[in-house]
């Protein structure tokens, strides 16, 4: 008798708590994770998004951002597994979420987080020193076709990650054989730009944001951007796309917000809605403009489909260059 009363009581408490959860959400502070150090793309995206969400009153609870760097985002991915079902854990990711899995660095994948919404797209760029013999992306491709080792390509991410993939994707689309032999030399952070400015590498494969400053100053030339259409404003507006140069490919650095695995439906819908409203605010427009981001909102289910499709594309490319590895 006593036991059954206890059981009933426990059930009642659970029920009340559960109900309170859904309707009061959010009622306590979030934990917003940037899976890398401060100052980078993930960190900036998360900080900007939480800033607008709270300032516009779309989310009433505090949204402090914490940095969990390591393993190309893998450490944070392992961390959110412990938060399964917790609707107060948010994390930002981009292509490396798929890539660290496909290159075998972690067995966790995009399936181990809950996609809430894609927010922005960013694109890559290929830059050369100002006195480089290469005048266009076609010149680089021609050189690679003759001898894949002849052009030393620098980048700021590890092999098999974004900077590497975007040059391979371009070379692949242009019909370069011997993708495996292309000399990709990874540097850390800003050192890649220094290596280009000093003429130590022939081509720098990197994000658009990284090249704007030195391009404006005339220290480098940018041969191509990986966006589908030309960038509308700023110094990059004069730079042709890969497509314009007959290389039919686009490389997107998408960024979106995810929840912990098994994020409850109602809370996910709430956040999706809040983010959907956020991207329509003037302050978000301003932030995107300032950072050179292209607005690219995509809701939860579309985002999930997109991830699945993109994962297959990356897999094909990585298999081709022999970097695809199933984590043990």
């Amino acid at each position: 008798m006593r036991r059954s009363i206890l059981l009933l009581l426990a059930l009642a408490v659970l029920f009340v708590a559960g109900a309170a959860f859904a309707s009061d959400y959010p009622s306590k502070p979030f934990e917003c994770i940037a899976p890398a150090g401060p100052g980078g793309g993930w960190d900036t995206t998360m900080r900007m998004a939480t800033k607008v969400l709270t300032e516009e009153g779309l989310v009433k609870s505090p949204m402090p951002v914490i940095n969990k760097p390591g393993g190309g985002g893998g450490v944070a991915l392992a961390y959110v597994q412990k938060k399964a079902g917790d609707p107060y854990s948010l994390i930002v990711y981009s292509p490396p979420l798929l890539l660290i899995n496909l290159t075998g660095q972690t067995e966790l994948s995009y399936k181990n987080v809950t996609p809430i919404a894609m927010l922005i797209n960013d694109y890559g760029a290929f830059a050369v020193p100002k006195d480089s013999p290469y005048q266009s992306m076609t010149d680089v491709i021609e050189a690679l076709k003759k001898d894949p080792k002849s052009v030393k390509i620098g980048g700021a991410s590890s092999p098999g990650s974004m900077d590497h993939l975007q040059i391979l994707q371009a070379a692949h689309a242009a019909g370069v054989s011997g993708l495996k032999e292309i000399a990709y030399i990874p540097f850390q952070g800003g050192e890649s730009l220094a290596a280009l400015l000093g003429g130590h590498v022939g081509v720098l494969s990197t994000g658009m944001a990284e090249v704007v400053g030195p391009l404006e100053a005339g220290d480098i030339r940018v041969l191509a951007v990986t966006s589908p259409e030309r960038i509308a404003e700023g110094p990059l507006a004069a730079v042709p796309t890969l497509k314009e140069q007959g290389i039919d490919t686009v490389f997107i650095n998408w960024r979106g917000i995810f929840g912990a695995p098994d994020m409850p439906q109602a809370e996910k819908a709430f956040m999706e809605d809040a983010l959907g409203k956020m991207v329509q605010t003037a302050s978000w427009d301003e932030i995107c403009k300032r950072n050179g981001w292209t607005k690219a909102f995509m809701g939860s289910s579309d985002f999930a489909t997109f991830l699945e499709k993109t994962n297959e594309e990356y897999k094909t490319l990585l298999t081709e260059i022999g970097l695809y590895k199933q984590a043990q």
């Binding site: 900007m48 800003g190 400053g213 300032r290 950072n291």
Partner: peptide, 27 residues
Amino acid sequence: TLGVPGSGTTAVMLGALLILGLQPGPL
């Protein structure tokens, strides 16, 4: 002068400059 961070700390500062809407570098 170049927009290239010389240390971990200046890398964060560089990020802050960008967030504030300034392009680090000679210009």
